[in-house]
């Protein structure tokens, strides 16, 4: 499935819910699907600093594609990460670097990704792209 198809799938899922609380129930549900980062990697090295909730992120490179693992101490943050990982994981580095992630806006979660939101998610997206860039450069070398 392409990124666009995965984004479409997520958007359609969220269109089923009219009520904000139901949307958030679904986000909490998503948090359980997140491929978790190894407990031993929950260190400062993998920490994405946010003011209120902590996020840990790691990435591996296999057969030309990037795979993410992550975790957060806040469940809603974790659920949103799960959505991002669901869309970006298994993609080629250049696809990740170019991705706009407009689905986040479309499902009404844009506020969580604004840089001033104190949850580390904005920095996390940047870091996902940095990982992808690193793998791309390594590949070229």
């Amino acid at each position: 499935m392409s990124i666009a198809e995965k984004e479409k799938e997520v958007i359609e899922e969220f269109e089923l819910f009219n009520d904000w609380m139901d949307k958030y129930e679904h986000i909490i549900e998503q948090s359980r699907q997140l491929p978790l980062i190894d407990e031993l990697q929950k260190t400062d090295e993998y920490l994405v600093r946010g003011c209120q909730s902590k996020v840990w992120l790691n990435a591996t490179f296999k057969d030309g594609c990037v795979y993410f693992t992550a975790d957060s101490d806040a469940v809603i943050t974790k659920g949103i990460i799960a959505l991002l990982v669901r869309v970006l994981s298994g993609e080629k580095p250049e696809v990740i670097i170019e991705s706009q992630l407009s689905f986040i806006d479309r499902i009404g979660l844009k506020e969580h990704l604004t840089p001033n939101r104190a949850n580390g998610l904005a920095s996390m997206v940047k870091l996902m792209k940095t990982f992808a860039l690193g793998f791309k450069l390594k590949q070229q070398a």
């Binding site: 904000w20 609380m21 958030y24 209120q52 909730s53 101490d73 806040a74 469940v75 809603i76």
Partner: peptide, 14 residues
């Protein structure tokens, strides 16, 4: 053990 951020986000939506 619910994170305060989670509670804040959900209260906001209400």
């Amino acid at each position: 053990d619910i994170h305060p951020y989670d509670i804040g986000v959900l209260l906001d939506k209400m």
